[in-house]
Design a protein around this nucleic acid. Structure first.
Lengths: 212, 212
DNA sequence: CCACCTTTTGACAGTTACTCTCATTTCATG
DNA sequence: CATGAAATGAGAGTAACTGTCAAAAGGTGG
């Protein structure tokens, strides 16, 4: 039906020879996610129960919970973190952290949007509308924050548990969170990449005294 | 028992003449909160059920839910927001927003710690340890963020829905969140007020190139 | 192709946070 | 004290999880 129904395989059958078992697992995972997205679009987040998801995905409720710890995770989980880390580490050692971040995040946005813009929009919409989803997103972003701490901590010579680095990373996360919210609340009319860029300006220089 | 058991009345019987009904409501509210703190200290957050809380507070479970929408709210809810707003607005018009924030937050920390340091520590500890509490805290802080947007939006001449202001406010919230986490994870050994101050430095100037 | 072991699955029972409804009790007021 | 409004408690119901155990499916050596 929607473009979402297909193409939810960011992790394609990595290597053709993968064993029936592994392939089935991936299929189940995406089946659950697809079912979830479809049901949520039709009837909303709260009205969608795990039982319905299980039925549509043709698995048992137990299996749903085996694949995703919480309902919110079905919507949100994605493994961009390792990519993010790799990209960050690939930046030249002497590049100022802020520039590295700007580059990497910019790239991440492009990739994310290219992969499935529809899903990205649904996700941010749910983040804005469903508190539980927003909370879960914050949690998962704070994991990303720790990852940032590692890299930035190394690059700046402070440790990964440096107070300043941690505060910086988390405030970055907060800022990016708000970018998504703003974008969704304005009906995804702005250019997401540009918003991220402007947000980074704020993070870098603080709130400049005069507008424009 | 603990110093917590008493003195949970940040809102004292505002005016002596308040009607038995209102006074009882306040008592019930604090009874529920006290019971919750006590049970959590004894047996941990997850192991503490609403039923137990209700029993110890000598009300029915229904009543607990009438006073607090979620279990996390029993631990966290506190109405500092109006005070915060008032204090912020009381700052001179021409003071740079960052300076106003520094002053107001500094004061808030002092007041919060003076009121009941024990509870403050328990709360931050729970924030660090219990994901659900942390999430709820984030939610409630994002409410505070909106409030900040109002004031800062006015002061800086941009509207309260200015993208830059929103990003700034939310990144501030994220940063402060991390302050609390850091503080709790380091066993509350640092001076909280000083940590807040250092966090604001990061927010104001970004991550400066060299440590110290 | 078959036996054997491991992983995955489904069925089921149980817990708990939270919602809704309705009758009862408790306070406020004339 | 009578009357209305607000607060409470009791109880039934929902849905997200958790844990257990037996059956089924996939992989492997003969």
């Amino acid at each position: 039906m929607t473009p979402m129904t297909a193409a939810r395989t960011s992790i394609p059958a990595d290597r053709p020879q993968l064993g029936l078992r592994e392939r089935k697992k991936i299929k189940t995972r995406t089946a659950i996610r697809d079912a979830t997205y479809r049901l949520i679009e039709e009837q909303g987040y709260d009205a969608t129960t795990i039982e319905q998801i299980a039925e549509l995905a043709e698995v048992s409720p137990s299996t749903v919970f085996r694949y995703f710890p919480t309902k919110e995770d079905i919507v949100l989980t994605d493994e961009y973190d390792p990519l993010l880390e790799a990209e960050l580490r690939a930046r030249p050692e002497d590049e100022p952290p802020m520039d590295s971040l700007r580059y990497v995040l910019g790239k991440a946005v492009v990739v994310g949007m290219a992969e499935d813009a529809e899903v990205t929009r649904l996700r941010t919409r749910l983040m804005a509308e469903v508190p539980a989803v927003r909370s879960r997103m914050m949690e998962s972003m704070s994991v990303t924050s720790h990852l940032l701490c590692q890299v930035i901590g190394e690059r700046t010579g402070r440790g990964p548990d440096s107070f300043e680095v941690r505060v910086f990373a988390m405030s970055l996360i907060g800022g990016l969170m708000e970018v998504s919210l703003y974008w969704a609340q304005h009906d995804h009319e702005d250019d997401f990449a540009e918003l991220v860029d402007r947000a980074l300006d704020v993070l870098e220089h603080g709130l400049t005294p005069r507008a424009e």
